[in-house]
């Protein structure tokens, strides 16, 4: 193996192992700004936990007015806090929108730093099969960007193939970069 081989980036490999079966984000382009907007289904998914958590917590607070029900109040309150906190942790990334700003010449996903739009070389589409112990296997698709320094950053990751292809095309046009399709047949 020479020095160049050790620096090779496998563009066929997906960045993330899992991903949702449903459409989680859509690309929205407004003038010089392109951003990823979470879908209602993705937000509802997180909201289930928050609603259940708040409901249990509310029930626990109500029970505190009955002195003989403190044990149940603590039990429900504990569950409520745990489930609600989980929901908050899930929804947090959705509230921080990833955006491509031509005016600032930057890509901001609140995670990867110093990504200039001019440094983006191409966009790539990858596919994978997500296998779960709790459900049937399903296909999931990634839209990743590649910078001239070899960094690969995930932009989209969901199971709606048609929407992802459409968003990839739109984003490629917006950024004036090539969209490379690395989808392959996966045999389990």
């Amino acid at each position: 193996m020479n020095e160049h081989d050790s620096c090779l980036v496998s563009l066929q490999r997906t960045i993330l192992k899992n991903g949702p079966e449903f459409l989680s984000h859509k690309l929205v382009i407004k003038g010089d700004l392109a951003y990823l907007k979470p879908t209602l289904s993705a937000m509802s998914f997180c909201m289930i936990y928050i609603v259940v958590g708040v409901f249990l917590l509310g029930l626990a607070v109500r029970l505190l007015s009955f002195p003989d029900r403190y044990d149940l109040a603590i039990f429900l309150g504990g569950f409520g806090i745990a489930i609600g906190t989980f929901g908050m942790a899930l929804i947090k990334p959705f509230l921080r929108r990833s955006s491509f700003d031509k005016e600032k010449n930057s890509f901001n996903n609140h995670k990867d730093r110093n990504v200039k739009l001019g440094h983006i070389v191409s966009l790539q589409i990858n596919n994978k099969i997500v296998q779960s112990k709790h459900g049937l296997s399903y296909g999931c698709y990634e839209l990743n960007l590649l910078t001239q320094h070899g960094r690969r950053i995930n932009i989209l990751n969901h199971g709606d193939e048609q929407q992802l292809l459409h968003d990839a095309e739109q984003l490629g046009y917006f950024l004036h970069v090539e969209v490379k399709d690395y989808r392959r047949e996966i045999i389990l």
Binding site: F22, S24, C46, I48, L90, L136, Y138, H158
Partner: peptide, 10 residues
């Protein structure tokens, strides 16, 4: 929320 699939779940 768990069986709907795909997201990190409880």
């Amino acid at each position: 929320s768990v069986i709907v699939g795909g997201m990190p779940s409880i």
